[in-house]
């Protein structure tokens, strides 16, 4: 019984860590995409120097 509960808890923590990672990765990639890659004029002009300095394709 104890083993079963332990296994269940471990499984739950594994899933929540995986969900946490996926969620964080999507948010992080979203921020990098909007700030570094979206070609809308205002965004492009504001982030221009940073995009070049960070090695993102800019123009």
């Amino acid at each position: 019984m104890t083993t079963m509960t332990a296994t269940k808890t471990a499984a739950k923590s594994n899933t929540s860590a995986l969900v946490g990672f996926i969620f964080a990765a999507v948010i992080g990639m979203g921020i990098v995409t909007v700030a570094g890659h979206v070609q809308a004029d205002t965004l492009h002009d504001a982030a221009h120097d940073v995009r070049h300095a960070t090695g993102f394709p800019c123009h």
Partner: peptide, 23 residues
């Protein structure tokens, strides 16, 4: 604006990095 966007981009990197560290 460059300071603002650099901070923003590194925050984006940090989300991916800390998410992987948590895993």
């Amino acid at each position: 604006l460059s300071v603002l966007f650099t901070a923003l981009i590194y925050t984006g990197y940090a989300f991916m990095l800390v998410g992987a560290m948590a895993l």
